[in-house]
Design a protein around this nucleic acid. Structure first.
Length: 231
DNA sequence: CCCTGATTCGC
DNA sequence: GCGAATCAGG
């Protein structure tokens, strides 16, 4: 499958959000973990906490003269004046602090968020719309703090007339994406939010799901877009 | 063993 | 540009 803008966007978000290549590959579907990593590198995405490259040595003891298929053994004589390995003073500029997500900081007044609502930087994966999703322990137990009396989720979109555009998002309306980004009629749910969440009650149920072991993922997870998720 | 990301290299 | 194969650390 080709790397569409959307897929790339998701890849970026998840990668920067801390998701593993496997998770990303799994989420995107139809791509291998290696493909994701390869693409990530090609995109210039930085290498996050990688297990194999924890420390960084100044010198390169054994670069990699491994050529299993003996293809191009000699291409660089590499004079190697032995001593004095010129180190390039590359300024290791790294990205600024991780930006969690749609910083939805609803200063909840009368809606006691059970989870103290402060620890959200533990992104585990990204949902369909590229929206970040958390792990189970984060917001699982106290799921339904929302018995809002006035709710109109089911058919939130009154009409095409007042589609909720990106610019109209607020802490008060559901940010669930409707349709594909980029399409002319792409908009957001716009229903009243489940207090404390960025989505309405209905979409909260979709957005916040427990991460299951890789082997036991639900096959037909709710897909917000008509997503090209062919599996 | 499993997992992870990094790198190489044929396509 | 892509990604399987491979490498290598945890």
């Amino acid at each position: 499958m080709a790397w569409t803008d959307e897929r790339i966007a998701t890849l970026k978000k998840m990668w920067e959000g801390g998701a593993t290549a496997s998770q990303i590959a799994d989420e995107l579907g139809d791509v291998s973990r290696n493909a994701v990593i390869g693409k990530a590198h090609r995109l210039g995405l930085k290498s996050r906490p990688s297990p194999v490259k924890a420390n960084e040595k100044k010198a390169k003891p054994a670069p990699k003269p491994k050529t299993k298929v003996a293809a191009k053994p000699v291409a660089k004589p590499t004079p190697a004046p032995a001593a004095a390995a010129p180190e390039k003073p590359e300024p290791a500029e790294q990205a600024p602090p991780p930006r969690p997500a749609p910083s939805n900081a609803p200063s909840n007044q009368s809606q006691p968020m059970p989870n103290s609502g402060k620890d959200m930087p533990k992104i585990v994966s990204v949902g369909p719309g590229g929206f970040l999703r958390q792990g189970p322990g984060d917001q699982q137990p106290p799921i339904p703090p929302a018995p809002p009396r006035r709710l109109v989720p089911a058919k939130p979109s009154p009409d095409i007339a007042d589609k909720t555009s990106l610019l109209e998002l607020s802490d008060k309306v559901c940010r669930w994406p409707m349709g594909h980004p980029g399409e002319p009629d792409f908009h957001f749910c716009g229903a009243d939010v489940n207090p404390g969440f960025p989505y309405c009650v209905e979409h909260c149920g979709r957005a916040f799901q427990a991460q299951l072991p890789r082997g036991a993922r639900r096959p037909p997870p709710p897909l917000p877009f008509g997503g090209p998720r062919v599996r």
